[in-house]
Design a binder for these strands. Structure first.
Lengths: 235, 235
DNA sequence: TGCTCGATTTCGCCA
DNA sequence: TGGCGAAGTCGAGCA
């Protein structure tokens, strides 16, 4: 990885056109040829970037750069698309390279825990959270338009489709509506009720769901995990 | 901005729990207190990060780190939430700081062109792309559930609602469907037809749209821009 | 401030 | 490989 601190002007042309006026910035050149342009603020998203595969060509400034105080021109071109990032280097303040990775030179990679999959697993094991006498039919119940997160049976034996979200938005209600429409065409399952379960449900989503006769269920992830393990998971 | 190349082990606890095994990585510490952890591959998204406002505290290794070859412990805590990023520093290979920004120390910021807004502007000006004899009623036509991108009138005088996307997905069709349902309740407008216009339309979205009697229209941004300016915009 | 929607989204899964 | 849904999504615009 090569880290360059430089006064630069940047133009991007691809899905959109973008321009960065002259300023001092961090240029990160990764080993796969990709480049990130970071300023000292903003969040983790760079001001500009080019993702791999791409190639960097260093050019001498041409006539069009006369009088612009340009020392070098970097042409970063995407291999597969027509995207081009042009970096005009005015002054290089620092330029260092380092080898990253573990002993083998590879990045071990991130280990995650606690996303929607975990929520689904917990609700499947604690299916009675949906109501007394509920039983699980199956998780990821496949349909022609995609998998229903959880399919269950209520105390009376009627089928219930559950859509799970971390944050319950209007999109989730639409998704569940499409599943219910499809499931209710199956004479072996119909009538199928819907439950919209999430750690947080937006007011507009709740309203839309209730208008459509879909029940809303707030989930407490910490409590559900507590029931399961008795103690928070540590590394 | 401070750039540290270090052999490190990282744990994150917040919305999810994540772990990064020991390896050499780039740690970017921005002036606003935020931190990014980058490896030599992947795209612009860091392996781990903490966005501002947050504080970094450097601790001496405690008993729980005995035998783990830990030189320093960085506790990065979000000011508003309970998110915590713990960086175990095994070895620092490089540690440099630089002032970024322009002459005033500020980042001038990115200038963009060519997103959905531009597409909407172009289609409004070239409304005949919808069909012969079409006329514009207005852009961003407000309704109770949000603005319709473009409302037009066809040759026969009937209202047409247009939903614009760069990439036409199922969500866009759902959105247009909600607008049409609402607009068709207005006796002054009804009946209102729908047109789903995008640079690219996913097969599933096209199918859903056609099932609902919504017309699909592929847009050629480059061609539309060419009609408008006669020449591509340059910086 | 809260909500909605776009993004050069990126990322990961599954058919 | 392509399509699709989730993301520690982020960020802008608007009520």
């Amino acid at each position: 990885m090569r880290l360059v601190i430089a006064e630069c002007t940047i133009n991007y042309s691809g899905r959109l056109t973008a321009h960065l006026p002259q300023a001092t910035r961090l240029l990160v050149l990764k080993n796969d040829g990709s480049i990130l342009v970071h300023s000292d603020s903003g969040s983790y998203k760079p001001l500009n970037w080019m993702n791999p595969p791409c190639t960097i060509t260093v050019l001498e400034p041409g006539e069009e750069h006369a009088g612009l105080d340009v020392a070098e021109v970097w042409q970063v071109a995407q291999t597969k698309t027509a995207d081009v990032l042009t970096v005009l280097i005015h002054r290089v303040l620092s330029d260092v390279s380092h080898e990253l990775g573990d002993a083998t030179g590879a990045e071990p990679g991130l280990v995650k825990d606690g996303v929607e999959a975990a929520l689904q697993e917990l609700l499947a094991e604690q299916i009675e959270l949906l109501g007394e006498g509920f039983s699980l039919i199956r998780r990821e119940y496949m349909t022609a338009i995609g998998p229903v997160d959880i399919l269950a049976r209520d105390a009376s034996g009627a089928a219930v489709a559950v859509e799970l979200k971390r944050r319950g938005d209007i999109d989730g209600v639409e998704q569940l509506t499409r599943y219910l429409e499809l499931l209710n065409r199956d004479p072996l399952l119909a009538p199928v009720r819907g439950v919209f379960a999430a750690q947080e449900i937006k007011p507009q989503a709740r309203k839309l769901a209730e208008d459509r006769g879909i029940e809303c269920l707030l989930l407490d992830y910490e409590a559900m995990r507590g029931v399961e393990s008795g103690a928070p998971k540590l590394f």
